[in-house]
Write a protein that binds this DNA or RNA. Sequence first.
RNA 1: GCGCCCGUAGCUCAGCGGAUUAGAGCGCUGCCCUGCGGAGGCAGAGGUCGCAGGUUCAAGUCCUGCCGGGCGCGCCA
Length: 552
Amino acid sequence: MGELVRNALELAQADRELPPIPPLELRIERPKEREHGDYSCNVALRLASAVRRPPMEVASSIAQRILCTEPIAEVEVAPPGFINIKLDADWQRHQLLSVIEAGPDWGRIELGAGQRVQIEFVSANPTGPLQVGNGRGAVLGDALASVLDAAGFDVEREYYINDAGAQIRLFGRTLFARYLQQFGRKTSLPDGGYQGAYMVDLAARLKEAFGERWLDSADDPPPDLSEQGLQLMVEHIRSDLALLRVEFDHWQRESALYNAADGESIYDVAMARLRDGAYVIEKEGAVWFRSDAVGEDKDNVLIRSSGEPTYFASDVAYHYDKFLVRGFDTVIDVWGADHQGHVARTKAAVTAVGGDGEALEVLLYQLVHLRRGGERVRMSKRTGEIVTLRELIEEVGADAARFFMLQRSADAQMDFDLSAAASADPRQNPVSYVKYAHARCASVLRTAAEAELSASSDHLELLDSEQEATLIGEILRLPELVADMALRREPHHLTYYAQSLAQAFTQFYDTCRIVVPDEPQRSGARLTLTQAAQAALAATLGMLGVEAPDEM
RNA sequence: GCGCCCGUAGCUCAGCGGAUUAGAGCGCUGCCCUGCGGAGGCAGAGGUCGCAGGUUCAAGUCCUGCCGGGCGCGCCA
């Protein structure tokens, strides 16, 4: 569509109706008002002063040169200088056949051209169960991955397991203490150890599986006890995420970055790169990354004076691995907003190890607060209130959890209303409304089959009511929406689209009787529309990761 | 103090690199069930888009400052 207008503009210039001007971004938008057509463009308004002509004249010079063929039915110039384009209604109606053919794949486009994108998300420390906030990152990352996948990118979902460092040692020591306690030993937890009851459960499971194996171990913690505990914890996290319908293609262990496969570990190579590039400086007994290159005021420690690498050093190695070893074109890290301070230095580090810092994108999401109706729910163990992601899912279900988490842009803090999410009543819960629309499509199609009526494209011109036109428009705009969401890394638009699509179908259903045995032609057309609506709903719910039931 | 995010209807929030009459859901008011699932539909009330400047023919949207709120600013992760 943009090209059509651009071509017309260039023609106008070639015909000397308009003076040549420097190329500019053309923006095509979808007007809110139906009267303004299906697409509209404001080039003329933007150009008017540059070419020193009234906007309306500029607009008509361009508009005259837009070919009014096939998809386009009408090109209009509207004050103060808009070019409004109407699509041919019949062409649109026949597009429904492509929609039905695509089915739940409707909306898939080739925008990404197979570029490899890695999305790393959640990546919570494997020292405890996932919290509600992790759920937001999980849903955001997963839905973005689905959107990019639909947009034609080659997407990999990844979870990074921080299984190295002090934190995990403390986990091991806590677990060891709990393990000894299983055998009645009077052992206290280490300072700052993990207090949660889940550690007791883990210890009990280790006792069950391994008996007295570590009872007299001199190590604190015994390495394989830590390892077994870690695996149980990761498995727990994996199953929590599975409840949310979030699955990963790859689980990357931090410790693997330190394993030297053939002499040098990923970590060694990454650090060597930094040294070669003169990005490091030694001072105060530690090794620092020179952040003045980034414009940060402080340098960042890579290797402590104790010789132990920092979390940041691991991150450098990890991103080296992502870009230089595994060769992703784009890497998107989904982080909680509390990690915002790490963005600049991580990008700088990517550049420093020989990658393109611009190819690393960090998507930050803000905090989640829970509420129950008007009441704020304090997320604390002490009050016995909901804390873990699993508890949230058990209370509201995966569909509502996902949908509600995606109703806000990542930038905005969010109040998650448990009572609305838990309600099955669509009057409070948009998830049910959307799923219901899908189920209703299925129901109508079943009824039609019983009445021996079938979808037909022979008389699509009978889809001529306002509600039908609106629904067709909603269905057909999905591919554009996918492109927009993919480019902007904003999957939250899905929830709004899902609602307006569901509403358009419901209004159509409400005003147009679909199954009318006396009017097989009209029924055939409306059944075609119903099938297409169902496909668009299924595709949308699919990207949202919400079920699309045939009955409720 | 510095950095990032947010401030739009009673509540929770959309509003895309500026544009044709500011939106949704919930809540509120009033209508509509002798038809494919009323788990619905229609209509309405409700907004100085935090404040003040600036850029522009045009600003909720861009720029600056201020005021609120959140999160960061470790040889912690």
